[in-house]
Simulated assay, not measured.
Amino acid sequence: MLRNLRLHRVLWAVTGLLALVAAVTGVAVPGIYAGVVAEDLRPGAFSQDIISALASAVLIALALAGGNEPAKGQIAALGLLGYFFYAYGIYAIERAYNGFYLVYLAIFGLSFWALIAAGASLERNLFEPDLPRNLRIVSASGALLQPLIFYPLWIAMLVPLMISGDQIDSLYSIFILDLCFIMPAFLLLAFLTYRSHPLGLLLLPALYVLGFTLIFSLALGELAKPMFGLEINLQSFWLSLVLSVFFAAIGTFHLLKLDLTPRPRQPASQAASQRPPGPAPEHRR
């Protein structure tokens, strides 16, 4: 699916290794967030580091896999890169100025450019991906649901701040990342998947991988609150858990049922040469 796969594997490995070091340190020494992450948000940072450690291990495994990595493995890797872009984008934008801040910036930047490189290297002409119609509609509808919910929700939270001129101290990165990057991606890929466009069919599962890892870390963060002397918000826990299971289920079915059998397209010149001859055009006098 991707040209120059060796280069992409290097990008995946470096990103995964940096994320593994940062995440494992965050889990082992939660105190690194003292003073740079609000006290009520530290359970979320702890749970995000757990998910990041697992995600980085999977990304490194995909990078080190021998042979030509299957296309579906590459799709999963793109989803994990999207997760790192979002997760460490939060630390970068929110100015988490601890000893790992430069590492956070490196992960944020590497994951972004690895995604750009992947987009430029897609061998779309080697595949005509196919997905059963019913599953294609369900997958696209699930993706469309996200911007329909979060655009009004986030905008409704931003308008009072815009009117009053208040500046919140934390989580403003969520507005930036969601409204500028994630929701437009869901919207675009939902439309392309509805149209059975190859880009939508190929990339929408990666977005579901991103969604699952992000939202599941929120559910895990609720369970981690007692470790930090805070009470679990059961409503937030169940909402995050249900949404993460939703992402996991749709993304898994989409990826499993996605037909990626190579069907090379004929060059236009060859296709034209195989057309049956038609009536000769009349010559103008």
Score class of each variant (00 low, 15 high):
residue 173 S to I: 02
residue 232 I to V: 11
residue 218 L to T: 04
residue 277 P to R: 14
residue 226 P to N: 14
residue 31 G to E: 11
residue 9 R to S: 09
residue 123 E to P: 14
residue 105 L to Q: 05
residue 131 L to G: 15
residue 277 P to A: 14
residue 41 L to I: 06
residue 184 P to H: 15
residue 191 F to M: 10
residue 216 F to W: 08
residue 147 P to D: 00
residue 229 G to Y: 05
residue 277 P to L: 12
residue 10 V to Q: 13
residue 112 F to P: 06
residue 267 P to V: 11
residue 134 N to M: 14
residue 48 Q to H: 02
residue 124 R to Q: 10
residue 128 E to S: 06
residue 284 R to Q: 11
residue 246 F to N: 09
residue 34 A to R: 11
residue 259 D to K: 14
residue 263 R to H: 15
residue 225 K to I: 01
residue 138 V to E: 05
residue 236 S to E: 04
residue 100 F to Y: 11
residue 64 L to N: 07
residue 207 L to G: 00
residue 206 A to D: 00
residue 15 T to F: 09
residue 6 R to K: 07
residue 73 G to F: 01
residue 147 P to A: 02
residue 171 L to C: 00
residue 168 I to D: 02
residue 93 I to C: 10
residue 78 L to M: 10
residue 276 P to M: 12
residue 98 N to M: 14
residue 121 S to K: 03
residue 132 P to N: 13
residue 90 I to T: 03
residue 241 L to E: 10
residue 251 G to T: 04
residue 167 Q to I: 15
residue 128 E to W: 01
residue 31 G to R: 10
residue 206 A to E: 01
residue 59 L to W: 01
residue 279 P to W: 12
residue 75 I to S: 02
residue 12 W to V: 00
residue 266 Q to K: 13
residue 254 H to P: 15
residue 203 L to S: 08
residue 187 L to R: 12
residue 115 L to D: 09
residue 134 N to P: 11
residue 155 I to W: 05
residue 100 F to T: 04
residue 183 M to H: 07
residue 205 P to W: 00
residue 210 L to W: 03
residue 281 P to D: 01
residue 103 V to E: 12
residue 12 W to M: 00
residue 137 I to W: 07
residue 205 P to D: 01
residue 120 A to T: 01
residue 282 E to Y: 02
residue 78 L to I: 05
residue 269 S to A: 11
residue 72 K to F: 00
residue 39 E to Q: 07
residue 199 L to H: 13
residue 133 R to N: 06
residue 194 Y to R: 04
residue 181 F to L: 02
residue 267 P to T: 15
residue 267 P to I: 13
residue 19 A to V: 03
residue 278 G to E: 03
residue 227 M to S: 15
residue 110 L to I: 00
residue 10 V to N: 14
residue 40 D to V: 12
residue 10 V to E: 11
residue 239 L to G: 13
residue 215 I to D: 01
residue 235 Q to C: 06
residue 266 Q to G: 08
residue 196 S to C: 07
residue 9 R to G: 15
residue 260 L to K: 02
residue 282 E to L: 08
residue 68 N to W: 10
residue 232 I to Y: 09
residue 100 F to H: 06
residue 225 K to C: 01
residue 161 L to E: 11
residue 113 W to M: 09
residue 204 L to G: 00
residue 261 T to P: 01
residue 54 L to V: 12
residue 174 I to V: 14
residue 63 A to D: 05
residue 144 L to V: 03
residue 146 Q to Y: 12
residue 266 Q to E: 11
residue 262 P to G: 03
residue 239 L to S: 15
residue 96 A to Q: 08
residue 237 F to Q: 00
residue 226 P to C: 11
residue 197 H to N: 15
residue 196 S to F: 05
residue 141 S to K: 05
residue 103 V to H: 13
residue 19 A to Q: 03
residue 140 A to G: 10
residue 171 L to F: 03
residue 139 S to V: 14
residue 3 R to M: 05
residue 274 Q to S: 08
residue 240 S to I: 06
residue 117 A to K: 04
residue 190 A to L: 03
residue 159 V to M: 08
residue 149 I to K: 07
residue 47 S to W: 07
residue 8 H to Q: 09
residue 3 R to W: 07
